[in-house]
């Protein structure tokens, strides 16, 4: 059975539309939302911390390596690290990693529920499964992932500072000076816009592939792989679109 791209897109949009219905019991939905915030946000914190610190450190070292001209003040390194981390590394790189971590988890969870008929069981009870299973995941992702991106940006800059100072490329005061040079608050807004868009993409795409799994356990694995691939591509595509519109 070959489902073409337009059928899939239509089904995806329908899924999003049908996600909005009156909750049967707000308390249960709130509980599910909180649960997903923990699953998506807190459980990804560790990996986000690690990649952020290293990504900041590496970008500091590589920037220093490329800036060979004596005419450029060393504080520029801090400025470049700050901007690349805020503009690109934190929102995009972190979201790409989260597409793997969170996306495969969501697709796997929903896929398993579909294959073992747990989704049918919920449906029989008179619960709108799209609202109960997918909406809390998307909302939780849109609440927690931007927070993770902010944390990542701070840690990335700190990591850059740590690496730059520890290797003796710049002094602490030089780095701090550069950090506040030509700072554009809009960059932070831009990073957050990206974070919101990407988190929506990650949660909705992986929910889609998980929810519509068809077949056995083998299909669950396929669905999570597919959801990771598609969300990564969509993230990169939207990254380009947003950059060309907003910058």
């Amino acid at each position: 059975m070959n489902i073409n791209i337009f059928t899939e897109l239509g089904r995806y949009i329908l899924m999003l539309k049908e996600m909005f219905s009156r909750p049967e019991n707000l308390k249960m939905y709130w509980k599910e939302f909180m649960h997903q915030c923990v699953e998506i946000g807190i459980r990804s914190l560790g990996i986000v911390v690690i990649i952020s610190v290293f990504m900041g450190a590496v970008s500091a070292l590589q920037t220093a390596y490329q800036l060979v001209s004596p005419l450029i003040p060393l504080s520029t390194i801090a400025q470049i690290v700050r901007d690349t981390v805020i503009l690109e590394f934190s929102p995009t790189l972190v979201c790409i990693v989260l597409a793997g971590v969170v996306g495969s988890k969501i697709a796997g969870e929903l896929g398993n529920m579909r294959v073992s008929e747990q989704i049918d069981a919920l449906e029989i009870m008179g619960i709108n499964t799209r609202t109960y299973l997918i909406l809390p995941k998307i909302l939780a992702a849109m609440v927690t992932i931007p927070m993770l991106v902010v944390i990542s940006a701070v840690l990335g800059i700190l990591g850059g500072k740590l690496a730059a100072v520890a290797t003796g490329i710049v002094s602490t005061s030089q780095f701090n000076k550069g950090l506040f040079q030509y700072f554009k608050p809009f960059n932070v807004v831009f990073a957050l816009v990206k974070a919101y868009v990407f988190s929506f993409l990650i949660a909705s795409i992986s929910s889609y592939y998980g929810y519509y799994v068809n077949g056995g356990a083998l299909e669950i694995g396929r669905a999570s792989t597919k959801s990771v691939v598609v969300s990564c591509v969509m993230i990169l595509l939207m990254d380009y679109v947003l950059s060309s519109i907003l910058l």
Binding site: S21, I124, M125, I127
Partner: peptide
């Protein structure tokens, strides 16, 4: 309609072939 179905389904209990417990 969907809403009516949801109401009716609250009066339905179903045991699935594979039990379908929430694991």
């Amino acid at each position: 309609t969907k809403e009516d179905r949801k109401m009716l389904r609250q009066q339905i209990g179903m045991l699935f072939q594979g039990s379908a417990l929430f694991d």
